[in-house]
Amino acid sequence: MEEPIIQLRSITKVYRVGVETIHALRGVDLDIGRNEMVAIMGSSGSGKSTLMNTLGCLDRPSTGEYVLGGKLVSAMKADELALVRNEEIGFVFQSFELLPRQTALENVELPLLYSATGGSASARRRRALEALQRVGLGKRVDHRPNQLSGGQKQRVAIARAILNNPRILMADEPTGNLDSATTTEILALFTALNHGGQTIIIVTHENDVAAHCRRVVRLRDGRILSDLPAEEDAEVAPYVAGARETQRAQLEAQGAAA
C-alpha cells in the first residue's frame, strides 16, 4: 500500500487556562492517504478545530508525532512550519478570510507573496487567474470581496487555497456561513477537485456535507470515536452517541442563518 500523506501518532493537545487544564486532543492516531476526501465530525468542543489546526501545521501538538509527506512536522520550528503551510497546505475558512481592499485576483495571489519561488509578476498573475478559472470565477477577477456573494467569496478562498497545488486542502466548516444551494455548489467544487487528484479534509457539523465525502472521522471528547466509509457512517450515524447534539447544533445553525 502507498505510504499515507498524513500520519498522526498519539497526538495530544493540552490547553492551560489559568489553573484549568483542557485536554482538547487525548491521543489521536490517524492516517490519511493520497486523494482521499475525509470529513471530520463531532459535537462542539470535541476537538475538531484543534485537530484541523494541527493537521494544517498552524499549531503544534503537545505530544505525539505528525508526519506530513514523509516529513516530521511535529518537530519543526515556526518558520519551517510557515513554509510547509505555504507550499503544502491550503486552508478554507468558515468566514472566508478575504482581505477586503484587495481584488479577487490579489486575494488569490496572496500565498505567492510569501513564497520565494513564485516566478515573475506575470507568472504569478497567470497562476492566480488559472486558479480562479478552476473555481469558475474567471470573470470576477477584479471584484472586491464586498462585490461578491457568499458562495463567490468562498470560491475565491478555495482558489487561494489550491493556488500552490497543496498536498492537502483543509476546510474548517467551509459551508457554515452559506445557504443550502450554495453549500451544494461548493461541495460539488470540492468533489471536482478531489476527482482531479486533490486530497481534501473537511470539518463539518452537517451530515449532508459529510455525505459528499468518502470517509468520515468522528471525534468525541478529543478521541476518535469512529472512522468509517461515508455510506457505513450514514447507517450508524443515528446511533452514534452525541449525534443528537450534532443535530441540535445543526438546527441552531440553521435557526441563526434564517
Binding site: 498552524l58 518558520d79 510557515a82 475558512f93
Partner: peptide
C-alpha cells in the same frame, strides 16, 4: 489581527 492570522496561515513567516 485577523488579517495577520490569515497571512501567517498562507505561509507568512514572522520576519515577513
Amino acid at each position: 489581527t485577523r488579517e495577520i492570522g490569515l497571512r501567517k496561515a498562507v505561509g507568512a513567516t514572522s520576519t515577513a
